[in-house]
Structures are given as C-alpha cells and as structure tokens.
Design a protein around this nucleic acid. Structure first.
Length: 915
RNA sequence: AGGCACGUACGUCAAUGGUAGACGGCUUCCCUUACAAGGAAGAGGUUGGGGGUUCGAGUCCCUCCGUGCCUACCA
C-alpha cells in the first residue's frame, strides 16, 4: 500500500493556509464527500495499517445485514456504536478489525427474486432450480447489497478487503464441514415430526421464525356421538376443519364427569370413523367442556399426545393448506377456511353444533410473509441441542462469558432460553441457501459427506441424488465469527482476531443468533466467539411504536444524513445507549448545531493561527507560571479524557457523548476561547501571542481527536486544516501512514495535569462573572453600558485569584473597572450579590437602580437560600442522622449551612442598607 | 397465562441510597469583530398513586394504575 500517495490530497489544498476562506456555517456534505474514499483507499481500515508487532488486538464481526436489506435506523444505531469502538481502539494503537459482510437471507431473497420473475411472467418452478439460483446470483450482483454503499456513507470503518458473504464458496465449505461433523457425532438427524409449515413460502420454519399474534376468533362446540349409546360428548375447538383428521377424544383422568367414558368409542361425524376416548393429564378440565378432540397430524399438542397413546395420524390438510383425499370426497381440494365453514354447516344440519362463542386466541404466522402457519407432520433435518446447550451454559456458569451489557436482564434471558432449548429444525424447503450435504442412493440409502466425491466414495456409487432441502439461514450465521476468519484452517486471521472482542446487536436476535454463535463457536473452536455482548436500545417512532416496513413509520437514516449530516446523526444515535427511545428529530438538530459550533470554534482558531502551529508538547508543560485559564483547560481536558475513556470501557456511549459535548461547548468555547481571546487576537506578533495561539490550536486538536470516533467527518476535515507537522500527531503504530486523525493517538489522561486548585480558582471567576451578568440582566442594563464592579473578598486566596484575573473579569462582565478589596465598600445605590466563601459583589447604579426592584431581587435570593437551609437544618436536627450518617456527610451539611448563614446575613445587611 | 422492563420538567432522555440534571422548547435582553445553527439571563419537578425499609428513597421492598417487550402446548 503506498502510504504517502494521499499526503498531497488535503495537505496542499488546506493545511498551512489559515487565512483561507472558511464558511461561517458547517456544510456536512462537503466534509462527507472526500474523506471516506481516501480512508478506504489508503487502507486505513485494514489491521495491516498497524505496524506494531506487539499491538493489542480488537475485533468485531458485523452482524451481517440481509443482502436484500437497505439501511434502517437499527443498523445505523449498531454501526455507529461499532464504529465508535473500532475507531477508538484503533486510535489507541490496537490492531483493529471490523469485519463486514452480508447474509444470504434464504427466504427473503428467494421471495424478492420470485416476485421479480413473476413480473416477467415466469414461475419459479418453470425456471427450475439451477436457473433460479443463477438468477439469484445475478440479482445479488446487480441490486443486492446496497447497504454496503450506505455503510460507506455512515463512515463505517470496516475492512472491506475482508468482506464476506454467507454463500461465498469458502463459507459454504465451512457450513458443510460443520454439518458433516455434527452428523457424524449424531447431533444432526433426520426425522419425521410435526413442524411449522408456511403454506405460502412452502417451507418449514423454526419456532423462532413464527410469530404469535392475538386473533379474534370463535370457539366451536361440536357434539360427537358415543358408539352404542345415545350419549353425546361435546368438544370445543377453534379449528373445526381438523375434526376430519381426529383420531381420539381426550379427557383428564381425574375428571369424574368423564370417568365412565374413558375407553369408549366415538363415531366421528362426517367420516364414519371410530375413534377412542383416552385419558391424559394434558387435558385441562376447566377449559371448554373438559373433552378435547385430538388431531395428531395437525396440532403440536395433539401430536405429542398421539405419540403417548399410539394414535394414528390422519393427514387431512396438505402443504398448500388444502384438504386432502383423506378428508373425504365432500372436502377434498377445499381451502382450510372453506372447509371450516362447510364442517360447521354440516354439524349444524346434523344438529351436532352445540354453540359458537367469540374467543380470542393466539395464532402463529410466518414472520416473513404473515401467512397463517399450518402445523404439519413432515420429514425434516434437526439439530440436537442438549450437548451444544451445555457448552454454552457451562461457559456462562464458569467464566461468566459472554458478558452481557447491560447484564440485567439479558444474561438471565439468555440462560433461561438455553435451559428450555428444544431441537432445532435446520432444513428448509427453499432453493436459495446451502443445500444439505446429504445424498441418497437409488435404494434410498442416506450418505452425508462434504461433497459429491466424498459421498460417492462413501456410498460406493455415483448414482446419487442430493437432498433438495437447504439449511436454515441462521445455521451459517451461527458460524460467522469463525467462518469469516478462515476456520477450519488455522489461519493468521483466526489466530489473531478470534475470539472477537465484542458483539453489538439488537435484543431480538439473542436467541436466533447470539446463543447459536456461542454454541457453535465453543463446539468447533473450543473458544467463545466474543467476550462481550452489547445489546443496544431500540429506536421507536414518536408514538412509541416499533419502526417497521409494514407500518410505514420508519425514519430513513439516509434522509436524516441529508438533512443534518452524518456526524450529527451518529452523535444522536450514540447517545441512545441501551434504553429504548422515541425518535426525536430535534435531538439531531441540536447535535447539528453542535457540529456547527465545533466548526466555528475551529474557524476562530484558524483565523488567528498565523505564526503558530499545533504542538502537543505544549500541553504537557505545567507549573504556576501558566495562566489560570491555561492550567484550567488542561485540567478539564485531562478530566474529560479520563471520563470518555472510562465511559467507552463500560460501553456507556451516552455518558461519553454528554461529557464531550459539555467539554467542548461549555469549557472550551464559552470560557477558554473567551479567556484566551485577548492574547490570541493581539495585533502585534509577540511570543506571547504565538504561545497563546499554539496552545489554543493544540487544545482544539486534542478535542478533535476525542471527538473523532463519534464524528469522523468534521474532525478529519478540520484536523487536516490545522497547521503544523501532522506526522507527529500520529500514533506510533501508524508511523509512515499518510496523516489522518483516524490514526492519531487517542489522548491519554495525565493525572498530574488534573489540577483541582485551578478548577476551584476558575470556578470562582466563573461565579463572579455569572453574578454580575445576572445583575446586568435583571436590572436591565444595556449590553453597551460600561459598569463598575466592586468586589469585597475577605479570603486572601480568593482575592488574589480574582485580582490576577482582573482584565478577564472586565472583559467578560463588560465593565469599565473592576475593583477588588478585602472589604466591600459600595454606594447605597448599588445592585449586590453574595458569593460563596463570604465574598460580595456590587455594581453601583446611581440613577439607574430601582430600589424596589433590587429589594425584590435580593429577597428572592434570600428565599432560595432559606428554603435550602431549612432542609439542611431539618436533617441536622435529626439526632439519628448525626449519629448514623457518615461523618463526612454530616460535616458537608454543616459547612453548607454555615455558608448559607453567612450569605443570608450579608443579604440582610444589604437589604438593611437599602432602606 | 406467566416472566421481565419502563413510568422523572411541555418534549426526548440523565442521575454508585446522600442538595433531582442535560438538550430542545418557552420568557426577557442582545445581529458584542468564531458561530443568530449564536451569546447572556430566567421560568418550569411534592420523580404515575398509595404503603413500607432507612438517619436519608427517583433509586431498595410491597401494592395498585398505565405502557412496552419476551416466553408459553390450553383445544
């Protein structure tokens, strides 16, 4: 990779031209245009950019989005968090890999292409399997994966050179390898079972792919005659049409109403079949009539019960949800709902319909196409889970891995699910996907092998037919963390990046995906696939509803990017953290304003940068010869760095964003720039001016680095414009790479530069300025009016601090003079305020002051203090508080009360003087 | 049906059991030479209701109300 090729790009155009024309408003589009292509082209995203052989490793595999999908808010949210972590770790010198890729998404993709064919008037089956699959690949080539373009827009720093697709040949080989190994161990088997069948998609679905929805329906009470008697037994059902396949009636063995009936024979109406009455604990005597019709071929519970009682399975509904021959001549070929109607009519004619009542129950629907699932008995492939499950449970019990963030409630949810795990239906009747590596001989003998040749060798014949089924899409997803890194070969990538560091995901796929990755990872690599699982919150619409395609209530992240910029959107998303939030565009707007603030702060620094350059070394110097605001900003910078690092270590994105926002806006812009302005904007090019400029630029440069993981575009754009030697700002692991803030060292927090004294002193200055501004505002003094500020500060240290900042105080309060004494002496016609530490401030307002107004203002102040004092005194008045609370807390309260008392006394005095 | 979250300012959200905050919105003043996407100042809360534990509860426990999610074989 030619590391220097891109050097000229930004450098020539931008750097060292501080007087160039910088627009007053930040234009995100301008910044978003260039940088990504350069980052990608220069290989900055690839771990190879890191030249330090001993660098620690950080890796993430992306939850592969569906190849059919386009970017939605959920992606944008997860990608932002993954990118923040990746960029942060990269700047910390980690060998960093964020591996991108896509999922072949069996059902979705097959549906998309089938629909496309339909428009051309072609049916899937007319085309045939081979041609169809070809067509899917063509579709993928042409219109699949638009999400990868969108991810580039997001600024996602994924290593595109390692991009994977679950249907790639190497990943498909891994799928077959795993399948064969599991089969050989007896963990995969073929069996005849009742499964969830989607009559529309014509495939089986796992339990996790069906959704249960409440449905307003009817409960039909049907009368069945008992053979050799005139008795009738009434059963209740929501699906009358299935009675055609009934092979028993069941009652609870303890239900005295039916004791005599057990063992009797029922004459099943409409069919003339004879079926037994059996006793089974499963039956709830309280529900319905206490007698249940049993249809083993079309209901999961009945299926189980049928096995227990050795009942026949009569299949009356086929894979298209139409009635079969076995349903009888009157019904064959009818749709299941038509058949239902007809059964009910016939029962009514026979006088066997007791009643129909309204009833709400839950119905299973296909998650993809929303068709009502038909439980059918069919031959499928299953994966036995006990063994795999125990691997995952052991890891959790023994090592508490993976570590869920937030731990509550996800660890428990994960464990409970594993504990109740059932076998996984892994076959699907689709054409698009990994075809099951199983072949049948002409005699019907089954051979499982890695490929046709191996199968032929094992079977001793090449007259083989491959099983037509494909594997559940989640089967290949479960292998993702190691299949993408080269397993089963012991590749460099596998050794280096596996186990991965963290998985960032939404909560709805903890079962579908997270748990299965853990099980498969442990089974085949012997190691966990990732250390941590960070579960993000969900973005809801403004009414608290989930965003979904069908509801049309989704907000398109790309629209938000267009309107407010990528960086502002990322900041909004990062601040979401782990809680569900309602989408609020105003939030993005405020971060857009923040981006503009950054832009303008940098603009100010650059417009006043002549003769100066960024010099990180200048920020290491400490000592009492530094001005207060310089010591203070260093302290704030280092504290901020510490907090941001701590927050990111705990995945507390929300905290990190808040900290950065307030540091940059409040500390850096509102105070530091204002305090250093005089020195920086001085006319004469003195060493003092140069130093101030250097210091200002250097603080800004550090701030940009801190912000970069969250706001990659604006920070890169501005960083490139800062004067000075860029190579020196790069992390040592990336020496030689073309300069970029992406590879600059993330600031270290230097404890020695956290200066509590400076923070205390600065706070005194800020307090004083705020009090005077308050007076100006409340007394309606025009901004242009020059005032006199009189300060009485009995505390020596405070007086020294304020005296040293006297020029600053004048500018910030727009005062003609600031006079600081140990005792306040001010004319009667003054507005006054009291400060912490017994200091007072007065602004003489001869002729301007309204004494009534001033008295009111002071009284309001007093009331506030008294309310607080009352609370604190009550606390202190409680002997048990003094006795039991920690001493420090009691002392704190005492100090606070003393301070309030002093201020109250001063206010009283002031009020007295006003009379 | 069970289980689990959540309920804080007008809105969206923060707050290791220790003086309830931020941003937006709102009010007043200001186009002060980085930024009106800005600056300064301000108003606004018995933290859904009720009980309990504690010196002290938004935070822990119970209960009720409201909202959301997950799991489940009640025909």
């Amino acid at each position: 990779m030619p590391y220097n090729a891109g050097l000229t790009f930004m450098n020539e155009r931008l750097a060292n031209h501080p007087k160039m024309d910088i627009p007053k408003t930040y234009d995100p589009k301008q910044a978003e245009e260039h940088h990504y292509a350069r980052w990608e082209g220069q290989g900055f995203f690839a771990p190879e950019i890191n030249r330090d052989p001993d660098a620690p490793v950080f890796s993430i595999v992306i939850p592969p989005p569906n190849v059919t999908g386009s970017l939605h808010m959920g992606h944008a949210l997860q990608h932002t968090m993954m990118d923040v972590l990746t960029r942060y770790k990269r700047m910390c010198g980690f060998r960093t890999l964020w591996l991108p890729g896509m999922d072949h998404a069996g059902i979705s993709t097959q549906l998309v292409v089938t629909r496309e064919l339909k428009k051309e008037g072609i049916a899937r089956h007319d085309l045939g399997r081979g041609k169809f699959v070809e067509r899917v690949w063509k579709w993928k080539q042409e219109s699949g994966g638009q999400i990868t373009t969108q991810m580039r827009r997001e600024g996602a720093s994924v290593d595109w050179s390692r991009e994977k697709f679950t249907m790639d040949e190497d990943l498909s080989r891994v799928v077959r390898e795993v399948f064969v190994r599991l089969y050989d161990e007896g963990l995969i088997y073929r069996g005849n079972r009742i499964v969830n069948w989607c009559p529309n998609d014509q495939t089986v679905l796992s339990d996790l792919e069906v959704e249960k929805l409440p449905q307003a329906g009817k409960l039909y009470y049907l009368r069945y005659p008992v053979k050799d008697s005139d008795q009738l037994v009434t059963v209740a059902t929501t699906r009358p049409e299935t009675m055609l396949g009934d092979t028993a009636v069941a009652v609870n063995p303890n239900d005295e109403r039916y004791t005599r009936l057990v063992g009797a024979t029922i004459l099943l109406p409409l069919t003339g079949r004879e079926i037994p009455v059996v006793a089974d604990e499963f039956v709830d005597p309280e529900f319905g009539t206490g007698a249940v019709k049993i249809t083993p071929a079309h209901d999961p519970n009945d299926y189980e019960l049928g096995l227990r009682h050795d009942l026949a399975q009569v299949v009356v509904i086929d894979q298209r949800a139409k009635m079969t021959q076995a349903a009888g001549a009157d019904f064959v070929g009818l749709d299941r709902y038509k058949a239902r109607q007809k059964v009910v009519e016939k029962f009514e004619e026979l006088g066997l319909l007791e009643k129909v009542v309204d009833y709400e129950f839950s119905i299973s629907k296909c998650e993809r196409c929303k068709s009502v699932i038909e439980p059918l008995v069919s031959t499928q492939w299953f994966c036995r889970m006990e063994n795999l499950r125990d691997l995952a449970l052991d890891l959790l019990a023994r090592e508490k891995k993976p570590r869920f963030v937030p731990e509550v409630p996800y660890e428990k949810i994960y464990r409970n699910w594993l504990e109740n795990l059932r076998d996984w239906t892994i076959s699907r009747q689709l054409w698009w996907g990994h075809q099951i590596p199983a072949w049948y001989t002409a005699e019907g003998e089954l051979v499982v092998a890695r490929n046709f040749e191996e199968a032929a060798a094992r079977a001793g014949t090449d007259k083989l037919t491959q099983d037509p089924d494909v594997l559940d899409t989640w089967f290949s997803s479960a292998l993702w963390p190691f299949s993408t890194l080269g397993w089963p070969e012991n590749t460099d990538d596998l050794r280096t990046f596996y186990p991965t560091s963290v998985l960032v995901t939404a909560r709805d796929i903890i079962f579908l995906w997270v748990s299965r990755m853990v099980m498969m990872g442990l089974k085949f690599t012997g190691e966990r696939p990732f250390d941590d699982v960070f579960v993000t919150g969900t973005i809801l619409d403004k009414d608290g509803q989930r965003m979904s395609k069908t509801k049309m209530n989704g907000v398109d992240p790309l629209d938000v990017f267009d309107k407010y910029g990528v960086d502002a959107t990322r900041l909004t998303l990062a601040a979401v953290g782990t809680t569900d939030i309602r989408w609020n565009e105003k939030q993005v707007e405020s971060y857009r304003n923040f981006a503009n603030k950054i832009w303008n702060a940098a603009r100010f620094c650059l417009l006043n940068s002549e003769g100066a350059a960024v010099d990180p070394q200048i920020l290491k110097a400490t000592g009492s010869d530094l001005a207060l605001h310089d010591r203070w900003i260093l302290s704030r910078l280092n504290k901020t760095t510490l907090e941001v690092r701590k927050a990111l270590a705990e995945y507390d994105f929300h905290q990190a964003v808040q900290t950065l926002y307030h540091f940059f806006w409040d500390d850096f812009c509102d105070w530091y720039i204002e305090l250093i302005k005089q020195d920086v904007t001085a006319e004469a090019a003195t060493p003092r001016r140069t130093e101030a400029r250097t210091r200002l630029l250097s603080v800004l440069e550090q701030a940009l680095r801190l912000l970069h993981p969250f706001m990659p575009y604006i920070t890169e754009d501005l960083w490139q414009r800062l004067p000075g030697k860029q190579d020196e700002r790069m992390h040592s692991a990336y020496r030689g790479a073309s300069p970029t803030i992406m590879l600059a060292a993330f600031p270290e927090s230097v404890v020695a530069l956290v200066d509590e004294r400076a923070e205390w002193e600065m706070q005194a200055v800020i307090d004083l300025v705020s009090r005077v501004r308050n007076i100006r505002s409340e007394m309606n003094i025009k901004p242009g009016d020059r005032i006199t500020v009189l300060v009485g500060a009995p505390d020596d240290r405070l007086r020294q601090v304020l005296t040293a900042s006297i020029d600053q105080l004048m500018r910030l309060t727009r005062a003609a003079s600031v006079n600081i004494q140990s005792e306040l002496s001010a004319p009667r016609a003054s507005a006054r305020a009291v400060l912490a530490g017994g200091a007072e401030v007065a602004v003489p307002l001869e002729g301007l002051i309204d004494f009534d107004q001033e008295r009111q203002r002071l009284r309001r102040e007093q009331e506030k203090l008294q309310a607080e004092a009352a609370k604190l005194n009550a606390q202190l008045g409680n002997p048990q508080f003094v006795e039991r609370a920690p001493h420090e807390r009691v002392d704190e309260v005492r100090v606070r009360i003393a301070d309030i008392e002093q201020r109250t006394a001063q206010l009283n005095q002031t009020l007295e003087n006003l009379k």
